[in-house]
Amino acid sequence: MNTNTALVNETEDLPGDFAIWIFILAEMLVFGVMFIVYAFARSNQIEVFNESQLTLSRAMGTLNTIILITSSYFVVRAVSAIKSGDSRQSGHWLLGTILLGGMFVAVKLWEFNEKFSAGITLETNDFYMFYLTLTFFHLMHVLMGMIILACIVYKLKNGDYSAEEHFGVETGASFWHMVDLLWIILFPLIYIIR
């Protein structure tokens, strides 16, 4: 009985819906396997990976990292605002997050366009196959996060969340932080280390 109570309390302490945490762990596992596969694939073609990596813009990668980190900070402020009962302020922080998400997408599309214009495709070599696949897969998660946050903003405007009931805001926030967390490994792996 005591053990059950303890388990329930621990679960309740997690921000947002417990189901999102299972989803987060599953997503992290999938990305984690892809990161490791990339690293070992590289060890067989070090020259190809190093030369191709140098064609990427580290400045743009860094810019996108700062954009995502800042967007995560905005989400923290949105959760803090709704906990204080300020749903208007919370909505503003989330709109800022969506805007930053849009900036991330724009930078990424600019990068993709630059590569496609240079005739680079998934079939050019293994590095570009990993670069395009991993970053596109991550980009889809950014877009999904933006949709989730837009739904939360809509519900905030409808007065569905309050200082007492803000489960949905925390759930969306946790998903967005996961997107940031994955980029924290993806960025140095693809753009920096060689």
Partner: peptide, 30 residues
């Protein structure tokens, strides 16, 4: 940011373990 410092050590351990294992495997490959 995610607020895991307030929850059970198990969740913090999972995230720390993830970074140690994935980062460690990347380091081994490199």
């Amino acid at each position: 940011f995610m607020g895991l410092r307030h929850v059970s050590w198990l969740w913090r351990g999972i995230i720390l373990g993830y970074f140690v294992i994935v980062g460690g495997m990347i380091a081994i490959a490199y």
